[in-house]
Amino acid sequence: MWKWLHSYADPERAYNLSGKLLPWFAMLATALVGIGSVWGLVFAPVDYQMGDSYRIIFIHVPAASMSMAAYMAMATSAFIGLVWQIKSADWAAAAIAPIGAVITLIALITGATWGKPMWGTWWVWDARLTAELVLLFLYLGIISLYASFEDKVLAARAAGILAIVGVINIPIIKYSVEWWSSLHQPSTIRITEKSAMPTEMLYPLLINILGFGMMIGAITLIRFRAEILARNGMRPWVRELAKAEGVK
């Protein structure tokens, strides 16, 4: 039933398909992040307690939630690569890791610049913050493990196992604000009940979350394509591309 999916594991087809998808992801990402950020910065109402400093939320929450979503996507790809030996899945995981690291760093830095005016400190060793820092170290560990083997099949296996083991950190980040008393506030967006936020603030936030997702998708496609080329340097179709685009 799902066999048609297998043909897309073929490197050349995966390369061409991601090339076709890339402009759509890139356009959606630019439009959504543009609209969401301008809406959040200029048009969303001022918070009665936090004043204009709360406007950091429109990048902090998308970055933080997408840093976890990207990790799940990477770990899923790594799992598929490990179990079904699909190399394209390993390459996708390798493509996501650096993006996830940057997004996690953004979540931490925007959190610090919001924490300083509101909590009076850039950083506390609190459960939520520490777990997010561990996520950054996981991403960095996976990147360096993948980079440190010449044999990329072996590298993907080692990095993939670390990625899968690291999934344990995701529920810890998610529920840290409920399990332990924390300086960090619990989530404002509720899926099952009414969100603890007026719609004038909620809409730009949701747009930016979607925008960050699309942006990660777009950058993943760019890196995935480069990774496919790097791993298939001996294939005729890649050599044709190299002859056409490489310097003389």
């Binding site: 950020s37 910065l41 001022v46 004043g51 204009d52 400093s53 406007r55 950091i56 990048i59 902090h60 970055a63 953004i106 830095i109 925007t110 610049t113 919001w114 300083k116 005016p117």
Partner: peptide
Amino acid sequence: GGYAFYVWLAYGVT
């Protein structure tokens, strides 16, 4: 609203 440094630092770094 007086939070220029923090808000623009966050958006700038991002």
